[in-house]
């Protein structure tokens, strides 16, 4: 394979912006959790509050968030990274407004992590702001970042983006595509006419995202599966979902919305996920997830 492999075991982790802080990761580790890596909240250049509350709206199976990339500044973020005492490796998620921003934070935090996730797809900036790809060519971002690190680079895209075209443009600089971020939506409170979210629009996550994201994984794998690895992220809450995503073409997995649980339950969730995957692999008759990556009969 061409890509720099991200070797983590077990093959699953949290999604960026979920649990967010290294202190939370450390505590879960103290409680005995077993995950392959922890992904930090996307870090930006300047301190930023993000949107005001409400930043989460839920109705039935639909969860929307408009957190809007809240972030401490680089100095304060580094202070916490320095204090991290966990054994589980970190993946640092970055966002910025221009190639330089990404390059600067990748260079600065390279020593603290095993890989970098480049967030090119946050759908919920503050009203009036533009998303990063409306302003800059993704190729320039990835090129700038590649110059700063030899570690695996993950580009996080959303199923709502033109992901095949973007992947093609950044192919020479990335190792993994994370499929994917949330999809922008709107829900209006009927009596008042205001949005349920102060950020107006919000990113839809959770169960409803799974079939959409699975199609994204499937299509990217089909087109570029020999050149890059795929991380699936969208609506995973059971071992079955991980197996299905693996068959579509993903080899690593991130979990977001399903982690809205007390700490003890998160530990239990992750620690039984591994067993569940084992059982399913046995049923299929293979030894490891690698044996089924991209193995499907959809066509």
């Amino acid at each position: 394979m061409y890509y720099k492999e991200l070797k983590i075991s077990p093959p699953f982790m949290n999604a960026s912006g979920i649990l967010s802080f290294v202190s939370v990761f450390e505590y879960l580790e103290k409680l005995g959790v077993n995950v392959g890596a922890w992904v930090t909240k996307s870090i930006g250049q300047k301190e930023r509050n993000g949107n005001e509350n409400p930043v989460i709206h839920q109705d039935g199976d639909i969860l929307m968030n408009s957190v809007g990339l809240s972030s401490p500044n680089l100095d304060d973020f580094e202070k916490e990274l320095k204090e991290y005492k966990g054994k589980t490796p970190l993946i640092i998620s970055h966002y910025g407004e221009k190639p330089d921003d990404y390059a600067r934070s990748v260079a600065r935090f390279d020593k603290y992590c095993i890989a970098h996730e480049i967030n090119l797809s946050c759908p919920n900036f503050i009203p009036g702001e533009k998303s990063v790809l409306e302003k800059v060519n993704p190729q320039e971002i990835l090129k700038a970042v590649r110059e700063k690190t030899n570690k695996p680079i993950i580009a996080k895209l959303s199923p709502a983006q033109d992901y095949l075209e973007i992947t093609e443009r950044i192919l020479d600089y990335v190792d993994y595509i994370c499929c994917g971020n949330t999809i922008r939506g709107l829900d209006i409170e009927p009596i008042s006419g205001f949005s349920y979210l102060s950020g107006r629009f919000g990113g839809i996550s959770g169960e409803v995202l799974r079939p959409i994201t699975m199609k994204m994984v499937y299509e990217i794998y089909k087109e570029f599966g020999d050149k890059i690895g795929i991380i699936a992220c969208g609506g995973i809450s059971k071992p079955e979902h991980i197996i299905s995503y693996a068959r579509a073409g993903a080899s690593l997995f991130q979990i977001g919305t399903a982690l809205a649980k007390p700490s003890v339950e998160i530990v239990n969730f992750f620690n039984t996920l591994g067993d569940g995957i084992e059982t399913l692999l046995k049923k299929i008759g293979v030894n490891s997830i690698e044996d089924i990556v991209g193995v499907n009969y959809v066509d």
């Binding site: 912006g17 979920i18 649990l19 967010s20 802080f21 939370v24 909240k41 509350n53 930043v55 989460i56 839920q58 968030n65 957190v67 809240s70 977001g256 919305t257 982690l259 809205a260 649980k261 007390p262």
Partner: peptide, 9 residues
């Protein structure tokens, strides 16, 4: 922020 254990705030 979220009140349901997701964001870490």
């Amino acid at each position: 922020k979220c009140g349901i254990g997701l964001c870490g705030s």
